[in-house]
Structures are given as C-alpha cells and as structure tokens.
Design a protein around this nucleic acid. Structure first.
Lengths: 342, 342
DNA sequence: TTGAAAGCGCTAACAA
DNA sequence: TTGTTAGCGCTTTCAA
C-alpha cells in the first residue's frame, strides 16, 4: 500500500538493508549513499512502519502511564473524589518531554484490588516501559510488574530498587509552616492528608521541624487528617470548628482539601485573608482558580512528569545503570491569602 | 522469547492457523479442538503479539486522541490559560468505554498553525482512528486528516461529512436563561465565550430564545464575549462593572470563565447568592470545587467521550455506514447560587 | 561499504 | 474442519 524501504531501495539503487542502515543513522554508510537515500525517502514520502519495526526489534516505542485508582464510584470531578490534578499535570509534563522523541504515550486506569492482575498495557506488551502513578498500590503489585521485564518509573513516591521521581514532602510542610510562623501565626491547623499516607506524615514532620526551628510552641498546632478530597477538607475543618478550635491560619495538604476548606469558611462568612489565613500545597487548576489570590507551595508536577520521562528514556538507553531516585524540591509561591499578625 | 501460536499449535497438536482461527473466534473450528486450544493457551499463558498482528492486518487496535491547542506559552492550569477540563473528562469517558474493548488510547497534543503538518500519531500510522478535540483547527486541517484514510470522530462540534459528537449549545443558553428569568432576574450578564466561536454564538441564541419566549425585555440583557479563561471572565466582568453595569445575575459560559467571575465578585466583597446570582456552564472540577454551591448547566463531558468512543467503534465495524451526528442535551443541576427575586 | 537472506509472530487465501 | 504457505515491513547477522 504505502511506501516501504524496498521501494526506497529500488529507486535509490541500493539494497533494502542499506536503506535500513541509513534510517537508523548508521555511520557505516558512505555519505554520498546516505544523501541519496534520504533524498528518495523525502521524495517518496516514506514513513517507517512501526508495527514491522516493533516485530523485529520487539520494542514498541510506546510508553504507558498507568494510573492506579480505587474502584471508582463517583465522578472524577466530584467533591467527594480525589481530584486527578496530579495525573493531568504529570501527563502534560511527560507529553512535553516525549515530543522530542519517537515515543508515544498510552494511558490506562487500573485499580489494584488484591487480584494478581496486570494492566492490559503490560500484559499485551504494548509498551516498553510504564510510569506508575497514583496512591493505591502495594509492593506485591510493583513486584508483579517488575517481573515482566519492563522498565518502570514510579511517580510521586520512592520505592527501593525502582527508579522514582517524587516531591520532597517534608520540605512542603516545612516551607508552609515556616512562612505562616514568620507571619506571626501560632494557632495553625494543618490538614495534611490521609493518616495512613507516609507522604502526609512527611509533610507533618516537616511542619513540626519548622515549628521547632523557630522555637514556637506546638500547643496550638493542629495536625489533622483527611482524604485528599474537597469534601474531606470541608468536613475536617467543620469538625474542628464544632470542637471550638479556631486557628488563625489553615494549611491545606492538597488543592482539593483546600477547596473544601474555602467552601466551609465562606459558608461561615469568614473571609480570607482578613479573618483567617490560608495556604495550600500543590499548585493546580484548583489553586489558580481559587476565589482569591491563594498562596501556595508548588509541587512542580509538570516538572515531575518531565523528570520521570527523562528518567525513563535514560533507563531504556542504559538498562543497567544504577537505580535513579529523583527528589524535586517544592517552592513557595507568594500570593495574597495570608495576613501578617506581626 | 515468549509463547507464540506455534508453541500452542505444537502442544495442542494442531496447526498454526487453527490456533489463529480459534483466537479470532472463528466458529469454523470444531468445538472440541477449540476447547483444546484454549486450554493450552491458558496453560502456557499465551498472549498475542500485537506488533505481529498489526503487521499482517495493518490495524493497530489503537486509537488516538488529538488535542488541538494553540502554541502554548503559559502553564495549562494558569488563570490565563483555557482550562483543559474538556480534555480531562472526555478522556475519562473514552477510556471507560474502551475498557471493554481491545483498543488502547494514545494521546497527542498538536498545534495547528497554518503549516500543512499531521500529528505524529497519524503520520506514523500508529492508530486506526482519531478523536479530534479542542477549538483550534480549520477545514484544511480536517481535510488533510481525512485524506489519510483514517477514521475520524470530532468531539465538541459538528462538521459536515465527518462523524461528530457535540453538545447542544443552544440549549445550554436556553436552559440557563430560562431558569434565571423564572427566578425573576431581568438584568443579566451572559459571558458566553469568544466572539468568533460559533458555539458561543449558539449559546447566546438559545439565551435570546428563552428571553423571547418568556416575553421579557432584552434591554438589560448583556451579551459579553471573553476567552474561555479565568482571566477572561475576570476582566470582562470588571469592565462591565467599571461601565456602571451591575446585573442581578451572571451566567458564565464555561467553568473557567465563572471562576474568574467569582474572583472578581469576592474581590469586591459581593457575596453569592445574597448580593448577586451566578450560574455556570460545564460541570467540571472547577464548578464542583467552587466556594459555594454553584448551580450549573451540565455539559455531560464524560458521556461525550463515551459516545465518541462508541461512534468510533461502530465506524470501524461498519466503514460505510452513514455519517453519524450525535448531539448531547445539556441538563440542569440545581444547587444554590441563584437567589429568587420573586 | 554494501548486499543477501533469514526471521520476528501473525493472518488469510487456498488446498486438502 | 484443518493444514500449508505466502507474505506483512523491517532489522540484523553474515558474506562479499
């Protein structure tokens, strides 16, 4: 049907294999021949057949992004769902990085639920490597995936023995706390995330470190747990309020949580930053579209995707290179949701 | 390396082609033989090699989602970017639908800018069909794509001669207007979208139709244009305000625009729905995470993706079936951001 | 520096 | 109902 290397070979007056060599940038071919071949490739509008290439090389030039979710019930954008902003921005970053390569990206949602099943992308060998992202998976799953002899880069958390790219969660808590404390806040609620999440724990540790560093009392620092949902933030703050605890500042552990916090505050007629101060962690669609200029710790999720992509590309090139563990440092975006008490 | 049909054939004591027939669900094979073959397939853990299959059938069992964007400058989640919520939710819908098939989904961002170029996915024949989504493309581009002999489903707008799935934009305006008018609002600003967008125009027409139907004066109905960004909504409303026009209700033409509207109002200390009423169109992460319970016209974007996917699958099955044009009807989600003036 | 030829795993026409 | 066989387009030894 379409133009093949054989056609090119005929027209250029060389053999099939010479054309192949040229395409694969071999320097074993005489410059003159190379020119001639490229010439006819352009003339005839030849495009390599990926399937044929994949068949012989057993490499698909395709990567998979596997998004681990719980069994979904409510809609992804609902108030009681975890916003998928991490997925969105990381995907953006990966695609941006991949644009300069000959790799494509397949995406699959997959829910790990005890069953020893593999995502279709992996089972069907559709990909040369996978990015694993999302909170819900265990070591058994990872090991199952690793056993497939496929490259793996984990995004968002660290795992022994696997390439990974994640954010320094401790620093997230530290940066947020430090800023609030420096502005004179001493009564602070930190709704960091689910209790069982180690990342959530790390954030709290970083927070505590800043408090200690500045020699401030922990007495009125409230570490709260909540799912990473708007509803979670809302309910957690409401509980606090009902318990008569009214801090001067609140730190939301994700933009989703913060959205819930804001909802509750506005319901109570409390305005930001006049009556209360807020900062959030993440920097996503939700924080940039908040009803006021929201100060935020930036998790650099697009960069996270880009780094994951680079890591994957390098891993494919040098299979046996040492395990890579990249930690991205969060940064502070000063906007206008915190009032100085000094 | 891994198990092939030849291995299956040997073990099952049949020929390669018999195995192939069984796998492809042919009923020409004796039931007994079929059982035996499936048995060994399970025993040996055989998984078809997609590349080989693609090579012989020249069908990749892969679909492409091509997201047409402008040349990007700012970050996708920034206040001055168009939020990509349409992409997110449609992708979700397509993936949900594809889960029951043997197709996978590749995604590519592509910016059309005059150059007669094709997205890589299409050029490299990586996909059997593409979904086209996003606002920025012209007929020349569509025609170029169609010429590749690849299946095309357009999402979000209608196009002569191509399968398409879109939302009834006229009805969006109609539903929103009708509700506001019925609540007694007569001074309404409708920030529908960009002036050059036909969808934006349709929404305004629907709005006008409702006004006419209820026999209300158009005198204090303000049709405004704005890019689909938070910043656009913000600035447009600000302009209106500065011109001394202060409607009792505002209708945002997208959740992004509405986010900007909310930002401006809160900056002015105006609260919703006490001082002013708001409704939005879209129903995305942004409307569900607004700082109050936001009444919204639902564009059913997930369903949009699902329908697009079904359309594609059907198109692949019956190449010559008649052109499909699906129009999804928006619906009304009553929450609590509109005050009754009656 | 180039060519010949084998083979990747599968489907599909044709034979039996 | 099943087997034989010829490719699909490419890479990759191995020879020349």
């Amino acid at each position: 049907m379409s133009v093949t290397i054989l056609d090119i070979a005929k027209v250029a007056g060389v053999s099939k294999s010479t054309v192949s060599l040229v395409i694969n940038e071999s320097d074993k071919v005489k410059l003159e021949t190379r020119h001639k071949v490229w010439q006819t490739i352009n003339d005839l509008g030849y495009v390599p057949n990926m399937a044929a290439r994949a068949l012989t090389t057993s490499r698909t030039k395709t990567l998979g992004l596997i998004f681990l979710t719980s069994d979904e019930t409510s809609l992804p954008y609902a108030m009681d769902s975890v916003p998928e902003t991490l997925l969105y921005d990381v995907t953006y970053g990966i695609n941006a990085c991949l644009r300069n390569t000959d790799y494509s990206l397949l995406t699959e949602r997959f829910s790990v639920s005890g069953h020893a099943k593999l995502p279709d992308l992996i089972k069907n060998k559709r990909v040369d490597g996978v990015f694993l992202i999302g909170g819900l998976y265990d070591d058994a799953f990872i090991n199952l995936v690793l056993k497939q002899g496929i490259h793996v880069v984990i995004i968002g958390r660290h795992q022994e023995g696997v390439d990974s790219v994640s954010v320094n969660a401790n620093k997230v808590g530290y940066l947020g706390a430090k800023y609030l404390l420096e502005q004179g806040h001493k009564q602070i609620a930190f709704i960091s995330g689910p209790a069982h999440s180690s990342i959530s724990q790390d954030k709290q540790n970083g927070f505590a470190a800043a408090v200690a560093e500045l020699g401030i009392s922990m007495e009125q620092i409230y570490f709260m747990h909540s799912p990473y949902t708007g509803l979670g933030g809302y309910q957690t703050l409401k509980q606090l309020w009902n318990d008569g605890i009214k801090p001067t500042a609140i730190f939301g552990g994700s933009d989703g949580i913060t959205a819930g916090i804001i909802l509750f505050l506005y319901e109570q007629g409390i305005s930001v930053p006049k009556d209360i101060s807020i900062i959030s962690y993440e920097e996503s669609l939700l924080s940039t579209h908040a009803p006021f200029s929201l100060t935020v710790i930036d998790g650099h999720k697009i960069q996270l995707g880009e780094m994951a992509c680079m890591t994957m590309i390098n891993r494919i090139k040098k299979q046996n290179a040492q395990e890579v563990t990249l930690i991205i440092e969060p940064s502070f975006i000063l906007r206008n949701s915190v009032r100085s008490l000094i």
